[in-house]
């Protein structure tokens, strides 16, 4: 089997993470912000799996499972918040959320 340089896997994870970060920083639609967070979490999982393959150890994949669980819980809560926000403000623009009033 051919060998893949493991830095390439980590660099791919870093590039995906930076794409997600760019999305979080630039988008104003909260749905895109949540999707970019998913991209970042997925890139972290990729880095863990690459490390697991590098040291030939299963524990990186266990960390990946934990990240998967975290992402599922985060998406459920985040989408609940988006639904509630859309009900109150009838928009998905995050700049309407700049006032802290109950």
């Amino acid at each position: 089997m051919d060998a893949i340089p493991y830095e390439h896997g980590l660099i791919l994870a870093a590039v995906l993470f930076v794409c997600g970060l760019l999305g979080v920083l630039t988008r104003r639609n909260i749905v895109f912000v949540l999707m970019s967070l998913e991209i970042m979490l997925n890139a972290c999982g990729l880095a863990f799996v690459v490390a697991s393959a590098r040291w030939q150890h299963a524990e990186g994949q266990i960390m990946y499972l934990m990240i998967l669980t975290l992402a599922a819980a985060e998406v459920a809560v985040g989408l609940g918040l988006i639904i509630q926000m859309y009900r109150r403000f009838h928009t998905v623009d995050i700049s309407v959320l700049n006032e802290m009033k109950g």
């Binding site: 060998a3 893949i4 493991y6 870093a14 930076v18 697991s52 393959a53």
Partner: peptide, 29 residues
């Protein structure tokens, strides 16, 4: 602005990672 910041972060990541040289021989877990 975000593009420049993310680009700097990416350069830091890549320059840190390119200092090693180990290849992966994928062993199925």
């Amino acid at each position: 602005g975000p593009g420049v910041l993310s680009g700097i972060l990416l350069l830091q990541f890549v320059s840190t990672m390119l200092t090693h040289d180990v290849t992966l021989a994928p062993v199925e877990v």
